[in-house]
Amino acid sequence: MSNLSVDHLGMIYELPNGGSVEALKDVSFDLESGRILTLLGPSGCGKTTLLNIIAGFLAPTSGSITLNGAPITGPGQDRGMVFQQGALFEWLNVADNVSFGPRMNGNEGPQTDAMVQDLLETVGLGDFGQKAVYELSGGMQQRVALARCLANDPELILMDEPLGALDALTREKMQSLILELWDRTQKTIVLVTHSVEEALFLGDRLFVMAPRPGRIEREYELPFAKLGLTEDPRELKNSPEFTEKREEILSLIWEMEEQIMGHEGA
């Protein structure tokens, strides 16, 4: 069953000085329900633009995009967002952040409270419901962001460099948490990242994107996300299969960067 369908998507940004940038050109793909797709590429490749179009924050200049056959025309709670940082509501405590979605839909009461507590325990913050979000570490804040997003039970979860601001150790733990949540909830996930390792480890599908114009350069079907549920992540990331793919993608991105440099004569 096809879930998210992207068809000949194009996005052109008009620049204030009169020029324009082709942030996306002719991007097409279908993403089946329950998959986890990672988007990787040098800056300017349009990966965040693509995510924002799926989220409904931007309208594409050409092409179409549908979720379960219905066109995406704006943001909606069938698509949850997890941002890099700073998207929590610091005037609300942890539990009230998580219950924000249900409350906006008029669902308040013991049932919601129980669901929120359950989610907090799922992300390892069972005792932190009454804490202020600014009292938590960066990693814990992202756990809150994940729980808040799950509280609305979205069809599709979009993550814009969710672990980008975390230190290396916290990042590894959070990667495993994302896989765990993916396995438990069977949600479809699209995740943008700058890290090749992260894209390989978390994506059971991976798009390497290229800039000028922004496009999908290469596609991978990967086994690591599923393996990561049972195997030790460090061993997996050190396995020959993983390192080989990592080097392949790294050199691909290096080539792109070189081209950009040559292009700009820098």
């Binding site: 989220a55 704006g74 909606g76 949850g80 967002m81 700073g86 929590l88 509501f89 924000f100």
Partner: peptide, 20 residues
């Protein structure tokens, strides 16, 4: 990103004004 997050959580314009 806060406003975007609120929209994605199903908040209406009025709710976003009041709550965000």
């Amino acid at each position: 990103s806060k406003v975007h997050a609120a929209y994605s959580l199903g908040a209406s314009k009025q709710q976003i004004l009041r709550n965000v």
